[in-house]
Amino acid sequence: MDETPKDQPIIRISGLCKYFDDFEALRDITLDVNRSEVLCLIGPSGSGKSTLLRCLNFLEAYDGGEVYLEGDLIGWRSAREAPRRPLSSEKLRRQRQHIGMVFQQFNLWPHMTALENVAEALMHVKGLSKSEATTKARAALAKVNLSDKEKNYPANLSGGQQQRVAIARAIAMEPSVMLFDEPTSALDPELVGEVLSVMKEMANEGMTMVVVTHEMGFAAHVADRVAFLEEGRLVACSPPSEIFGREPDDPRVRAFLKTYRERNVV
């Protein structure tokens, strides 16, 4: 993939539409993500946050509009064909290597140790030898502070540790973008912090991140911009100071944040 000039957005989403049968899950989303930017997606349940994120790596095939990663159209051969034809699985796999994803439910492979989880794709996608892959996987586990747990199976890791292994599995592939879908929502409150601090560190190191989250503290303090979705539409996208300011312009954003304000989260 060619490097786009540094000042160009790394992800370009334009006119994105997604239907589930007749149901319009995403309508005409246009949004850019800049290099090294942290973009948080917030919005009510069912507003399409996960769907939007999953369109970015083509886990959901979007129906209209375009998603470009570093100038490369994601998933489809061409945006102009009708009907559109998906890329060959080979090409799609190559695109996905540049996009790391972390799920709410971790989705570690339970029959592999932490180290094996991280090393698997290094060996069988990147084609590294076992010893090279192990070295890289160890480095990734060290980044998420889990060097001492590499031999553990997921069943013998806490939720927070599992999520950090999942992050290590993604960053070991050296993606240019990381997607997070509610990475802390399945965690006990006392485990949320360890995952968020790993994510903060990644942000500080300049990783481009798109984060669906209900952690308004994280969105307020770490995000460069916050996008608010409602009923499949992008209602607002602004720096957190504006979204979380005393009086957001949009009444829908105001209503959504009210419940968080009442709990003193923001």
Partner: peptide, 26 residues
Amino acid sequence: PHGQVEAARCVGLSEGRILRRIILPQ
């Protein structure tokens, strides 16, 4: 769980490998 297959697709594993390394053992 389908999420495990999706996680495997996200890191670029091929469908054949996913069947052999992720689905079958589990």
